[in-house]
Amino acid sequence: MRRRLAAILGLGVLIASASALGAPPSLKPFERGTWQSVLRGHTGRPTLVHFWGVTCGPCKVELPLLGRFAKDHPEIDVVTISADLVPNLPAATQSMLDKAGLSSTENFVFNDGFAERLRFEIDPAWQGDIPRTMLISREGAITTIEGSAEIADLEKWSAQQLSKH
């Protein structure tokens, strides 16, 4: 019985995987509670979380640089969260991520009409300015960079994270 179940599930995986072949991971909805699950999901791993938005000029400049950084640093988990105030646009968001070379990172888009509440869960002091980058160490210490991050600072942080282990 268990074997049959596993076989059926296995078939389901094959079908689902085949249909998804070649397609980049899709945008995930960022909702109430998502922030805590992101933190839990990356516990013990150095993680860079980048908040941006499709209408934000400085974000458009920074995003491709971040794409390059992610490619050069597979040891760092990179998570992007499109936090432009609603209505966030999945198609425009995905297109900009693709162009920036961030198709295969873990990408979220705010998906709650109450953006203030989502932001409050992340950082009660954050008023919505973007871009914004949070660097989370293996130990869970969070460093927040407001505005565009300097790639040199990200490199330095990344090197520190690796040298500890």
């Binding site: 899709s26 945008l27 995930k28 909805p29 909702e31 105030l85 609603v86 209505p87 966030n88 646009l89 999945p90 888009v109 998906n111 709650d112 009409g113 109450f114 953006a115």
Partner: peptide, 10 residues
């Protein structure tokens, strides 16, 4: 969900 109706502030 992402391709469907988006959560709205309206």
């Amino acid at each position: 969900q992402m391709h469907g109706k988006h959560a709205s502030e309206a």
